[in-house]
Design a protein around this nucleic acid. Structure first.
Lengths: 173, 173
DNA sequence: ATATTCTTTCAATTTTTATTGAAAGTTTAG
DNA sequence: CTAAACTTTCAATAAAAATTGAAAGAATAT
């Protein structure tokens, strides 16, 4: 297989993966393209290589910067902006995990806390209320467990990164 | 807050969470409704409570059964089918994790393995090839790490479930 | 066998989401 | 200041995804 074809396949695969996880296909593809591009790319490059419009390229590269996995790169004497992806895949995973935790875990936690306070009524039996609060309580504590696990993963990953970095620094050890 | 309103809010919140994770809103809502319903529900119940069509209800309950988190319940002397959700949230998480691993991790792994074999060409510099294979290699081994972590979580969860179960069996210990 | 009750399928339709492209905004240069 | 080079916005449009509903299929009862 040739490099160009391999890149194309990766971009396609990454895009598909993205849409399964609620990330728009194009956003994932822009990310993939930046990942496999050695240097930083301009908006025009993104437009040309992915065959998308200027507005689309701009919006998606912006979203990726919000996620913290793409950086703007300014070149002296150049007016236009260039973009490059964070290449350390552990950092990428960490940043995505952090972002999704903030965007998705927090809202559902708020809802769960809120609905834990159900009042007794004449229409609902105590058994039904009990079953409901138990269910919600379980989900709530599971969500807290998941949150803790995510934090642990983030930490573990940062440690992994650090230890790899240390090994690189002292190859003889 | 009253029970009905709490249920409504949970169904809405669960639906929103679902769509962020690439699960259709209605599928997540059907799941939520079954989670907070003490007994099993018929297709008609789902239609009425979620205000959806028969076809929609059927398709989504079917998808949930494919995921293994909803079961069909047959009642003696009843012709129609009833559905109930797996209530143990740890089992739910495990089943979803397994399913998504199969559906999403496997395809991307196949692509990554495939594109690792890039041939040297005259058009691409060795440095560019090197950078590409390194990037893909990193993603590949990270995916393997993630896969391992998922397995560990599944196992940990099964252990957690088992130990809780054991405690319930021998409360005096 | 025929009717009845319930389930499944799927083409048509609706709804949601993503994309475009041109206009407005911004920044630097002259 | 004005022009040029680029970025951002957003209403219109296109594309994708979900939903409907009616017809076909299955299973049970009469």
């Amino acid at each position: 297989m040739q490099l160009d074809e391999a890149k194309r396949k990766f971009i396609e695969g990454w895009g598909t993966l993205g849409s399964a996880w609620g990330v728009s296909r194009t956003m994932a593809q822009v990310h993939a393209l930046l990942l496999v591009s050695p240097g930083a790319l301009s908006t025009e490059d993104l437009m040309e290589q992915l065959q998308i419009s200027r507005g689309n390229a701009n919006m998606n590269v912006r979203a990726l910067m919000d996620w913290g996995i793409v950086r703007k790169e300014l070149r002296p004497g150049e007016r236009r902006e260039f973009f490059s992806a964070e290449k350390d895949i552990h950092r990428v995973a960490t940043l995505i995990l952090k972002e999704r935790r903030k965007r998705e875990l927090e809202p559902i936690m708020r809802v769960l806390s809120e609905i834990k306070q159900v009042e007794p009524t004449s229409t609902a039996s105590p058994e039904e209320m009990e079953a409901f609060t138990k269910m919600i309580g379980n989900i709530h504590s599971f969500a807290e467990f998941a949150d803790g696990a995510a934090s642990t993963l983030i930490k573990a990953d940062e440690n992994w990164f650090l230890s790899t970095f240390m090994k690189l620094m002292r190859p003889g050890s």
